[in-house]
Design a protein around this nucleic acid. Sequence first.
DNA 1: CGTTAAGTTGAAGGCGCTCAACCGACGTGG
DNA 2: CCACGTCGGTTGAGCGCCTTCAACTTAACG
Lengths: 260, 260
Amino acid sequence: MANDVFVAKLDQGGLLGPRERDALRNLAQNGRAVARGHHLIRQGDRPEVVFLVLRGWAVRYKLTPDGQRQILGMLLPGDLCHPQNFVLDAMDHGIVMVSDGEIVAIPKSRMVEITATYPAIDKTLWWSTLVDESILREWLFSVGSRDSYAQLAHLFCELHTRMAGVGLATGGRCAMPLTQTDLGEVLGISAVHVNRVVQRLRGDGLIALGRGELHIKDLARLCDVAGFDDAYLHRRPRAEHDLLVDGRERPSPRQPSGAV
Amino acid sequence: MANDVFVAKLDQGGLLGPRERDALRNLAQNGRAVARGHHLIRQGDRPEVVFLVLRGWAVRYKLTPDGQRQILGMLLPGDLCHPQNFVLDAMDHGIVMVSDGEIVAIPKSRMVEITATYPAIDKTLWWSTLVDESILREWLFSVGSRDSYAQLAHLFCELHTRMAGVGLATGGRCAMPLTQTDLGEVLGISAVHVNRVVQRLRGDGLIALGRGELHIKDLARLCDVAGFDDAYLHRRPRAEHDLLVDGRERPSPRQPSGAV
DNA sequence: CGTTAAGTTGAAGGCGCTCAACCGACGTGG
DNA sequence: CCACGTCGGTTGAGCGCCTTCAACTTAACG
């Protein structure tokens, strides 16, 4: 079921119980299909709903004065746009689908209701926001200190890890709807240069990339050249990692979940 | 009083009343002096206190594998380190003073207590966190899309605006404890190049910079070359901007604070 | 007055850019 | 069914921003 990605994503916060998972599954009903290029939010909007991505990818972006697009974040399946939109005034950036997909528009009132009812969900949404901030810091670190080869390798590591976190990567493969132009807008380099770097990564036997799919052929070496360490994603190791194996809850074996 | 910067900073969220301001002033007692180079937090720490900067500047940073430092954020007077440290596990970056200063270490329990007592403060702290995230996005945008000249101009605009927001900039002047090496670590460029860009900014009559002070000589033109628009700082215009004039509250004149 | 950190200047080189052309896949319409 | 237009990917040539290395000046401070 598509709405399991939502539970899978937030379960990485390590704070949810069966009741919270049910509530989240319930919240993620009624997805509607949207096409690539569809704007979820434009800069300056004051959205009255929160968007949840069930399928497909979206990007946060700003435009330069001369019309170039700079990508500032990725929304993968299971990700929410801005669970706390009520706190700020107007959106300072836009969000647009970069592939066909499926989204849910959750009314603000529903968000208020569910966070008031389930403190663990409220806390989890804030965890998610802080993780987003941490990812932003890592991107800034990347563009500030890594060359384009390591930068692209690092991006692939992150995207693969995040997709795997919601059960959408198997055998080192995951969807990769970004064009080379899009990748350039993420890393702040030209599409031509992205192409040359991709070919180096291919030639070095690290990845295969094409037809909308990324295949990481040598994860260990890719992580190595990227300097990738997934600590910044702040996933909490849960003792039992049985989510998504059959989409069903098991009564928690109640192991002492001792902090590591 | 130094602890007024804390109130001034959070008052930009536009959510505080007299009671909240008193509580915050009370929280910001007992600052202690720290020297430049003092680490507030190291990567991997699980701090049990929240740090508040009363005087001086600190930076968030990560180190590259070869020991280079990349700066990922600035903490100016009035800024808090990580009001929500309880949400994440371990710090994924360090924080260090880049000038002498004065800080307050607030125990976690005090934070929990005050946010539980004053919902407006709780909400304001989250506002502050979301603004930090917005700043991070703007930095990423900057390093990804602006050349070094516009980048440095933009940084100066931001720092001046933030200092002015807590009453620490007058007549286009504010403290600037960052060395040119530090500036390079913010922008991801070499110190040598920072020097050349600074000289261009000086030669163009936009700024004066030296002896720990930044003087913006032509703010309009500096904003223009930087493409600076302060919307991303999400300050809420309050009808009366009488903070800090005498450090005393006036009974709010109750003007209709009509949204623009 | 010596020492150290910060700032300044010059020369040479490389990473990534722009411009431009071309290829291939795909979808659409005549 | 083929022609054609479009979009994404690929390749080459030349250039420029920014880097590294190195030396030197200035400021701050004991």
